[in-house]
């Protein structure tokens, strides 16, 4: 999945491109990701924080996640599309905002301690009760 991949918000005011290969593709079941996605989990392509070039204005909201980390959530102020979540070291891009989401099979399920009792969790990927090692940030 190396090479340039592109994506953007629904109303097209925000567009981005990435040149790095994903560090991971996560399904995050934490309560904050439930709120952010409106559903059972957030689904993200995790990249190094410098991986994306963004054109257009995003609106950011800082939230203290269940891990006690501050996460910046960025979305399009016009159409509300959720786009990015950031920690100091990592950039999480919402999978379905890529122009072609099909390649991004999930590679891990995280924060399953907070999953709703009815949430589906894929069988064939590693599971983590809370954060996986990659979120410690040095990748």
């Amino acid at each position: 999945m190396a090479g340039i991949v592109t994506g953007g918000c629904r109303c097209t005011k925000v567009r981005y491109q990435c040149t790095a290969a994903p560090v991971a593709v996560t399904l995050c079941y934490c309560r904050d990701c439930q709120s952010w996605s409106g559903g059972a989990f957030g689904h993200y392509v995790i990249m190094p924080s410098s991986a994306a070039t963004i054109v257009g204005d995003v609106t950011g909201y800082d939230v203290q996640a269940e891990s006690a980390r501050t996460i910046r959530r960025e979305y399009c102020c016009e159409c509300g599309s959720p786009l990015f979540a950031r920690t100091p070291h990592l950039l999480a891009i919402t999978v379905a905002r890529f122009d072609d989401p099909a390649p991004y099979h999930p590679t891990m399920a995280i924060w399953i301690d907070s999953a709703q009792p009815w949430a589906m969790i894929p069988d064939h990927i590693p599971r983590f009760a809370r954060n996986p090692p990659l979120s410690s940030g040095a990748s």
Partner: peptide, 29 residues
Amino acid sequence: QKASGGPFCNYAVVPAEAVTVNQGATVHY
């Protein structure tokens, strides 16, 4: 998929008249 950023949206379908916004207001697209 675009609205949630993931593979689906997860919705509770309810009668519109059953919902009351008690505080604040939404914006829409």
